[in-house]
Design a protein around this nucleic acid. Sequence first.
DNA 1: CTATCATTGTGACCAAGAGTCATAATTCGC
DNA 2: GCGAATTATGACTCTTGGTCACAATGATAG
Lengths: 251, 251
Amino acid sequence: MANGKQREIELRDELFLRVGRELLLEDGYHGLTMARIAAITQFSKGTLYNRFTCKEDLVVELACRCREQRLSMLGHAANFAGRPRERMVAIGEAAEHFARLYPENIRVLHIIGAEAVLEKVPEAQRSKLKAYDEHVFSLMASLIDEAILHGDLELPPRGTVRDICFALWSLVDGGASAMLGGLPLSALGITDSFGAIARGCHYLMDGIGWKPLSTELNYSQVGKNIRETLLADEAKRVSERESVQNSPAKP
Amino acid sequence: MANGKQREIELRDELFLRVGRELLLEDGYHGLTMARIAAITQFSKGTLYNRFTCKEDLVVELACRCREQRLSMLGHAANFAGRPRERMVAIGEAAEHFARLYPENIRVLHIIGAEAVLEKVPEAQRSKLKAYDEHVFSLMASLIDEAILHGDLELPPRGTVRDICFALWSLVDGGASAMLGGLPLSALGITDSFGAIARGCHYLMDGIGWKPLSTELNYSQVGKNIRETLLADEAKRVSERESVQNSPAKP
DNA sequence: CTATCATTGTGACCAAGAGTCATAATTCGC
DNA sequence: GCGAATTATGACTCTTGGTCACAATGATAG
């Protein structure tokens, strides 16, 4: 049965990826070796290289899956019913929930994004990776367009939609990167990084006069609303996950 | 003469670092090999390892120098005579000039900051690296403190000085990271990344009501002023550098 | 059921690069 | 100039990414 064989190979590939991901998260980029994957999965290196042209190929595949998952979550959030700025907040909430729910995925993306890793990845795969980001970017951009159309936002003198998008993106991305070791956060007295990023985004949106301003609308309430409806499932799993992490042993 | 020998060894170490830096920038992290440095400098690998405990040691040393240089430039800029927000703008201008003047340095910092590289660096060196960032962070934080003391700024309801600092930092850092390949900027229609970052920072500062607001004071003029006085030398070299880059061949 | 062909799996093997160390060369203090 | 200390050397090991000729397996035809 040709179909059965096909299925078997698919499962085998998934196994490679799963083990690769575990090694990457457990022992870092250098802890992930093709020989180890082969040994653990009980296949030979040759078989592994039969599917993935090189280590980077495998690792980019892992990253693609993370990005795909995030994209789908953000895309879903963008459909929140509300004014554009509320929907932007929904995207932010989704991004935060994704990061809280799958911090390993954020780390995978962070590891893979580094030049030292990326420089060995062929161009074709790199653009595959970037496509996800472009998609998220355009998601945000069209929301800003809509806000302008809606009369909620007027572009600042020398600003453009893409500028604003870029600034929000940089803020979120830079913040995530700082959380993952770019800055010694605890030494700097930053305890609530996610909150700080969210607040930063609101400052920025207030700064361009995107209505309703945070002084006009209670965005904590909006966030709560989003968490209780659109992201109900994710929010539940986040609180489960984080409560487990905070109390590993029973009293 | 002991001094002469000492001097000779110092020069040798500088040579190692210079060649290492060249290889790193020319051929990426994997293009930089200890054997190549040894071959080019006409020393043996043993001698090289006599000075640097490992490849990462050398590479972190390179990064430290970049950070030190940037820190000194930002520290200088923070002394600009003006109200706190103007001085913050001066820091921003300095950061931009540093990045424009030494884009290679930004790239070195970016390469070194990656987890795949950092994971092989012993903790002691990592904290040495982080100290520079902490310094810049506190530079910014004390400026915000001063703004509050001065009555120019009132902290938003749930915001803290560190939050604001963190947000500005993330925005700048994330933007720089995007410029270095995190985002396909040209495909997204972003042409003036530096401007976009600067504008983003102003939006953010306006958003928290940091006076004088950008509607009250012409910050383009402030920036120009900074470039013509505090950063006169750097600005001149930047324009030289960039005009050379833009017209590589004579007409 | 067997012969043939195509697909998939294997592990010995190679190359490259990080890091080591016994030994050689050099320099310094006297 | 001589012994001690410092510095330089490059052959060597070890790890890891990647290859390839060959073996095993399974599908198909007669």
